[in-house]
């Protein structure tokens, strides 16, 4: 983002000169080719991402099973949603999951980034090892953790028995199924945010620390007075994208519990998927999507502001 600002100011100045030197024809040629290079993107993002945004709302006004003709029913889907206990529950479950995952991930990933910002032996090898969970796909990890959570021969149960405890049955119990998802998600997600924090830490000029050392600041003082304040924009960015990411989680719930036991892990995206593609209620699932969008719009607006803020820096 920073590169954009440093480069854009001189570009603007030079552009004025250039137009002056070569006259209108070059500006026209540039306009033509700019459009030419951009056209695929207009079509692509417009058709596959922006238009569906509006279509979601449109479809949500219909009753439609894909097999019959769509029937206009106005806001009925929204009224039904507001009385649907499953839907209300799924919002709560999504918040539970998102908050559980995010808060712990922020702490863990920042801690890891602080560790990896030091120089120590085999740092690069350790960094790769710590990053490995993020490399392999969530589908694979979901299966591996499904295996590890198995009450009779999963690792957790074996370990508990070895310590003299009973079998661990996290996925069967409505109270512990979600913590099991959260644990898996933190393990898979923390390395990603660690890397973002690490990039942020690396961007802090070393002079600041030198100056603080000269003034006799302790390591803790340097952390509280230099590192954390300067990391604030990165932290805000991580907060927003991790929340948006957590609200979209689907794969672990689908593979480990399929939303259960009961509805303990039926997050919003699971609710939308099931209503849309298992019960074929296109309109109803779309209405849920609209609510989902509205919830995330709040976070997205914050993200937009942060992105702009970083660009303006």
């Amino acid at each position: 983002m920073q590169a954009s600002t440093t480069a854009s100011a001189p570009t603007k100045r030079r552009k004025a000169e250039r137009t002056h030197i070569w006259g209108r024809s070059l500006a026209a040629r540039k306009m033509r080719f700019g459009l030419f290079f951009a056209t695929p993107a207009f079509l692509f993002f417009g058709l596959f991402y922006v238009y569906p945004l509006f279509r979601t709302f449109y479809v949500s006004l219909f009753s439609w099973s894909l097999l019959d003709e769509p029937r206009f029913i106005g806001m009925t889907n929204y009224v039904t949603l507001s009385n649907d206990k499953e839907f209300i529950n799924s919002i709560g479950v999504s918040f539970y999951y998102a908050i559980g995952v995010c808060v712990i991930i922020w702490i863990v990933s920042l801690g890891l980034a602080l560790v990896f910002n030091q120089n120590f032996r085999f740092r690069q090898a350790y960094l790769s090892t710590y990053y490995m969970p993020a490399v392999i796909s969530l589908t694979v990890w979901s299966l591996v953790w499904l295996f590890m959570y198995n009450p009779s021969f999963g690792l957790f149960s074996e370990f508990a028995r070895w310590l003299g405890f009973r079998d661990v049955r996290m996925l069967d119990n409505p109270a512990t199924a979600m913590p099991a998802m959260i644990l898996l998600s933190i393990w898979k997600g923390a390395p990603v945010y660690m890397l973002i924090f690490l990039a942020g830490l690396r961007a802090i000029p070393g002079d600041y620390y030198e100056a603080a050392k000269v003034d006799g600041a302790s390591a803790w003082q340097r952390l509280w007075s230099i590192t954390l304040p300067l990391l604030r924009p990165v932290f805000l960015y991580v907060v927003v994208i991790s929340i948006i990411g957590a609200f979209q989680a689907f794969t672990p719930m689908y593979l480990l519990t399929n939303g259960g036991p009961g509805s303990a892990t039926r997050v919003l995206s699971m609710f939308i998927f099931q209503n849309g593609f298992q019960f074929l209620k296109m309109g109803y699932a779309s209405a849920a999507s609209v609510i989902f969008l509205l919830i995330l719009l709040v976070f997205s607006l914050v993200q937009f502001r942060i992105l702009r803020f970083q660009q303006a820096e």
Binding site: A41, F42, F45, G46, F48, Y49, V50, Y51, P52, L53, R55, T56, V59, I244, F247, Q248, F250, L268, S269, I272, F273, G276, F277, M282, A285, S286, S289, V290, F292, L293, L296, S300, Q303, F304, L307
Partner: peptide
């Protein structure tokens, strides 16, 4: 368009995209 695509949760446009 590009910014919106980054920010739109994929799940929310799943049905119209399909």
């Amino acid at each position: 368009f590009v910014l919106a695509t980054i920010m739109i949760p994929f799940t929310a446009i799943l049905i119209p995209l399909f």
